[in-house]
Nucleic acid binder design. Sequence first.
RNA 1: GCUCAAGUGGCGGAAUUGGUAGACGCGCUGGAUUCAAAAUCCAGUUCUUUCGGGAGUGUGGGUUCGAUUCCCACCUUGAGUACCA
Length: 957
Amino acid sequence: MQYNHKEIEANWQKYWAENQTFQASNVSDKEKFYVLDMFPYPSGAGLHVGHPLGYIASDIYARYKRHKGFNVLHPQGYDSFGLPAEQYAIQTGQHPAKTTEENIKTYRRQLDRIGFSFDWSREVRTSDPNYYKWTQWIFTLLFNSYYCKDADKAKDIAELVQVFESEGNHKINAVCDDETPEFTATQWKEFSEKEKQEILLKYRMTYLSETEVNWCPALGTVLANDEIINGVSERGGHPVVRKKMMQWSMRIAAYAQRLLDGLQKIDWPQPLKDSQTNWIGRSQGAMVSFSVLSPTLSKGKELGDRIDVFTTRPDTIFGVSFMTLAPEHELVKKITTDAQREAVEQYVKATAKRSERDRMADVKTISGVFTGAYAEHPFTGQKIQIWIGDYVLASYGTGAVMAVPCGDQRDYDFAKHFDIEIPTIFEGVDISEKAYEDKGGAKLTNSDFLNGLTYKKAMKTIIYELEKREIGYGKINYRLRDAVFSRQRYWGEPFPVYYKDGMPQMIDVKHLPIQLPEVEKYLPTEDGKPPLGNAEVWAWDTKTNKVVSNDLIVSSSAVEKSKDNDVYPLELNTMPGWAGSSWYFNRYMDPHNTEEFASKEALNYWQDVDLYIGGSEHATGHLLYSRFWQKFLYDRGVVPVDEYAKKLINQGMITGTSAFVHRVEGTNKFVSAGQKEEFTTTPIHSDVSFVNTSDELDIESFKNWREEYKDAEFICEEDGTFKVSREVEKMSKSKYNVVNPDAICEEYGADSLRLFEMFLGPLEQSKPWKTSGISGVYSFLKKLWKLYHSGNEGVFLVTEDGATKEELKTLHKTIKKVDDDIANFSFNTSVSSFMIAVNELTALKCNKREILEPLVILISPYAPHIAEELWRKLGHNESISTVQFPEFDEKHLIESSKNYPISFNGKMRFMLEFPLDMSKDEIEKQVLAHEKTQAQLQGRTPKKVIVVPGKIVNIVG
RNA sequence: GCUCAAGUGGCGGAAUUGGUAGACGCGCUGGAUUCAAAAUCCAGUUCUUUCGGGAGUGUGGGUUCGAUUCCCACCUUGAGUACCA
């Protein structure tokens, strides 16, 4: 009997499902270990071999940890809200819930076939109302919270109201809207309910505001910054424009510093930490206030307007020779002189027209206009010109800069271009060619009280002076903006919000979830409302605390009109894709809880994720937002830890190996890759399934593939074969290079797939898929099987004899290697160790139980099906998942290898072997003797011998 | 431009604290088995050579008895980011 992977795998998968082998318990004496994968979005295309790479790695680790005696939580679920299902619904009219359900079925079938040890009883789906009930609840919690800067945490908004009632907001140090007015307790009490709500909205962690957003007309929705790449939408590549809209936003910026600090205590890949650090973009500097001088009034008189700028180099303030405002800056209109008005207006208009993309593509061109206005230098009192220029961004800092041409290259270029003075403030530095941006050496000069100081000291001094004179203060600025949370889409979480008197009202958790309404069309309405506006009725009845149902026969227009029937319109936007994925890792701990987000006991037991595996593409999206929510939930006492993943690994991408056939231009003739140089050809993707491992094309299959190739002619190589050329590309349907894991499981089995994906190379690197390589691991499994089955009948043959020293050496060497490798996530090299072990045992013809049992346990994380089969054949009743990983015993290595090699350096290399326990002196003596004979034989003088303890012997020339 | 990562046979890649460079697999070559093929097994496979050896981990230096590993400079590739004041 041969190794029959199909039968073995089907059997064990059935057994695991029936016996709930991998169900984790929330009560256990064992230490907990939480292994998590980034849950997939169930797309219609199904899985390709690249997708399970991370899942296989995490599964190996989860199984390994079970063998090590941990209570392992290893769940899986689906991030099932998303744009593709909605796009499909728009095209076909099919309800996204239906296509999502079908896609999930495909995913589940494919995942099951690979033999993962997921605890499916804990499955979550973000689009399941029982799940998004709690996403909605978190939203209401955010709404009912504000960020207290003194305590540096989010707090209940009720506490803020209490302070307002007793002392107004003078002493409040909280994150809020810039235009929040000051008021006293008496004033607060006199405010109407609506006025109070408007003020509170400026403090809430999630708030409504007129925001300039990235509007994508083609998709009919707003996009977050990380959903835009090079000025076009990540999905579809449609143009994006800036537009003002009333939107929900999240105060993630309040957490900027804590998100940065938190990176210190988590073990995440450095590149990922770097990109989050960049995204948050902390810069330390100062705010400086400049007064605007009236152009018409006599010199020195102030107009009363002030321009605040943020600068990271306040130490260079004496080098300021002009100021630049962003064209969108609010003061531009006011300060521009009549003489300059036309030029300025034209420039502002021209920049507004240019898309983000144009502005980015055109970094080199310097443009700007003088406003005619002047500002006063806060220290020297000099008149300095105020310009506008599009190199200053309205969205960063204050949208205005103090220009120091000698110390900043962009200011320098601008000054050169418009022939503005470039005063120097650096001692002994030549600035005739470019600006001096170095923060190091040069001392300041022409800088009054800063003269002779270098960067560090000058910074301290200038900030002290600015604060003393009340014209500025030290400040830390962040690039991170608040996150827009509204999407004009159908297939997302509805907000638990209705509007009464124009003000948002939260719906209490006991009435949640607010389920998505049925709509006829998934597109925005004709009058530009989001898709939910298509619902016949979408309103909230405050008497019954229910969504008004269709049988109440109240039309939405009637809802808007009627003010006294207790029915109010619901929010039409839905939440963005990152809402559901920002807390799912907590839900796995207690997924069926209907009373709470998750029970305190479950949260306290599981705490956080010990190992999180997923792609690095989520660096500034999911992985930042989820850290933000976790910190918020921690502040509000919902979760016990403020960082949810201790260790994170980014698995690399598995790329595809595309195949190209070459068509002679203008004809229907194809030429084999070896001869394509003789013609002018166009490469065309061929489906990789038509090509064998020697790059030969199956011409018949290719001809039958497309109608247009039916009558094509083929110019072959001399040996009659037709070859394709290969190229490594991203695995994608459109490139016809997708390899389906189902096909691999069918032919080689899931155990081969698992081993091979690990064997391909280091987990974190991206690497091309080559189906030809799988034969190596497949023959390893066959060898393993054959080692314990003899004859054509395949009788299972294991003896009870004691193992020899050689056999024990192989076993323990492998235990040590595999143990170390898994601990270091070096799965590729541990697969090699298995291969070596099986080869060695085959050579020794070892079929002893003493060796087989531990070896099978060792292999089981990688190849669980064959391991389980062998385990049962050995007569065990319990599942292999419950047994302990074998312990490494050094004794076997030492005892069985009495000798170890010692090498010598020098030109001539030779080897001597010594017992491990031999003393240093004895070795030295022997080597010296050896060296003497060698030297004599070769007719040279003996070299000096040095023995380094525990290492190796050197002969020094 | 800036930040980060990486450069080792025909290929994917090993060498985890500085100690026999090229493990393991693919591919290739030869052999066994077979009517033949597949499968399997065995041997070989960094380059070079006058068969003694010589060279060799992107390039050039340095530290060391000894460097793929540590330090400096440079080159190349990949990823991220982009007028962030």
